[in-house]
């Protein structure tokens, strides 16, 4: 009996038009796919609707991040009101502000303390690429240290712009194929 390669994960292509027509391979594909994809979708739904950010701010962007958490913009509408002081309880790291060379090890430490799955938003110009401070004192973008999922432009970004980036991150988490992990 020829060994058929296992179907690719996430693809369920069957030409059967009724259960009676389903072949052995179709059933095997069904078994290997349907449960995991569904659980994946539920898990990603749960993850993206309760992203808890780590509570720390680096510079002026942090003020806008605080404003995002307040009543007017209310990040709680997206399930992220719980800014966690302990990185171990946080899923999302909003790098809000410039990362100086002195702060770089600390930022990296916070990221490494966070438990998987974890995501990073580089908020503002300085965190994304150094912005106006193209000099020796600053890390030219926090992605030199840690992987970044969403970059938000603005100096500083409006709270709406941060929410826009946040919604983009939720979009990213919703698509298992485009996720980093």
């Amino acid at each position: 009996m020829a060994v058929t390669p296992p179907p690719e994960r996430g693809t369920l292509v069957s030409r059967a038009r009724s259960p009676a027509e389903a072949t052995e391979a179709d059933l095997r594909a069904l078994e290997s796919n349907i449960l995991t994809t569904t659980v994946d979708r539920v898990v990603s739904w749960a993850r993206r609707n309760s992203l808890w950010p780590a509570q720390f701010g680096l510079a002026c962007c942090a003020i806008e991040m605080i404003a995002t958490a307040q009543a007017r913009f209310d990040i709680a509408r997206f399930g992220s009101e719980a800014f966690r002081a302990s990185p171990r309880q946080a899923d999302l790291m909003i790098v809000s502000g410039r990362v100086s060379q002195k702060m770089a090890p600390v930022v990296k430490h916070i990221y490494e303390q966070m438990l998987d799955p974890k995501w990073v938003i580089a908020m503002g110009d300085c965190a994304s690429c150094g912005g106006v401070f193209n000099n020796y004192a600053l890390v030219q973008g926090v992605d030199k240290l840690i992987p970044v999922d969403v970059y938000v432009a603005g100096c500083p970004p409006r709270p709406e712009a941060l929410l826009y980036g946040f919604l983009k991150l939720q979009e990213l988490i919703a698509q298992p194929g485009r996720r980093r992990r």
Partner: peptide
């Protein structure tokens, strides 16, 4: 757009008014 700090100096410097800063603030990418 990630480097830009939206100071508007380019808009002021432009002799023909070619470059303007608009209203859109929803700037984010992967």
């Amino acid at each position: 757009e990630l480097r830009c700090i939206f100071c508007g100096f380019c808009e002021e410097a432009c002799p023909t008014g070619a470059i303007v800063l608009g209203r859109e603030y929803e700037l984010a990418s992967f």
